[in-house]
């Protein structure tokens, strides 16, 4: 009798140990989505399509000459809210390089907005090597920096979808694809277990499925199924250029 009791206690402890470990591993390593974002294929996706539309619009960001100064807050807001760069809260902002670069930095991190010599194009580079293209317009001697139109990539997935996992790892995770998606797209992930109505609205019936929209809710392209990176890449490139040229 004693032996059995000991075995039972041993197994009980083992089970608790196993349950505790696996629970914590999931929370730390395998978070798929929280209130605002989904984390799929090592990419961060917005969970709200409305938010996606909002971010995809072309909009004026700031006037070059007003930074540092009146428009500094606008830059900070854009970085924080639209690009989810949280560290800018305590950052300093200066202009260097003969007024051609705006630097936003803290002790650890920095971001730079660079304008070219002819003041026609600008680029925003964030310390983790993400580059965003910005538009420059001249009005009454002032240079207005704005965000270009961005296409929205809506990824329909589901936790039980066997093909999604491979698609995320091989296609979305492909470095070329990932770079274009992260820099030039507004990314939204729709969970087919939750966002059923959205799926129905766009005629998406199974995962994985990627839908490309412009900021006005027009469907630009559809990629149903777990396609490979070689198929995916030309389409994301074409859709991006199509929206940009508008």
């Amino acid at each position: 009798m004693k032996t059995k009791k000991m075995m039972s206690i041993f197994v009980f402890v083992l089970i608790i140990f196993f349950a505790y470990i696996s629970y914590n591993i999931s929370l730390s390593d395998f978070r798929l989505s929280d209130g605002n974002y989904s984390y799929l294929g090592d990419i961060k996706w917005h969970r709200s399509l409305d938010k996606g539309f909002q971010l995809a619009q072309e909009k004026d960001l700031f006037i070059w000459d007003n930074v540092p100064g009146d428009d500094s807050d606008e830059i900070m807001m854009y970085l924080r809210e639209d690009l989810d760069t949280r560290w800018v809260d305590n950052a300093k902002i200066i202009k260097t390089d003969e007024d051609r670069t705006i630097r936003i930095f803290t002790e650890e991190k920095s971001a730079e907005i660079m304008i070219d010599e002819n003041k026609e194009k600008a680029k925003l580079k964030i310390s983790d090597d993400k580059i965003y293209n910005l538009k420059v317009e001249q009005k009454n001697d002032k240079y207005i920096i704005s965000q270009e139109n961005k296409p929205i990539a809506v990824y329909f997935w589901a936790i039980w979808c066997q093909y999604c996992a491979g698609f995320q790892a091989n296609t979305l995770g492909d470095p070329r694809v990932k770079k274009i998606l992260e820099e030039d797209y507004v990314l939204v992930a729709m969970d087919l277990d939750i966002d059923r109505d959205t799926a129905r609205k766009y005629g998406v019936s199974y995962p994985p499925y990627v839908l490309f929209l412009d900021g006005n809710d027009n469907v630009l392209e559809r990629i149903p199924g777990a396609v490979d990176a070689d198929y995916f890449l030309p389409i994301v490139t074409r859709v991006r250029d199509q929206v940009r040229s508008k």
Partner: peptide
């Protein structure tokens, strides 16, 4: 039991969706 249950538990209590492993 645990593998199918605790992700749902986390979802209900913390509003997070988690996976049990990189590949289920």
């Amino acid at each position: 039991f645990w593998g199918i249950t605790y992700p749902v538990f986390i979802q209900l209590t913390q509003g997070l969706k988690v996976n049990v492993a990189s590949d289920t």
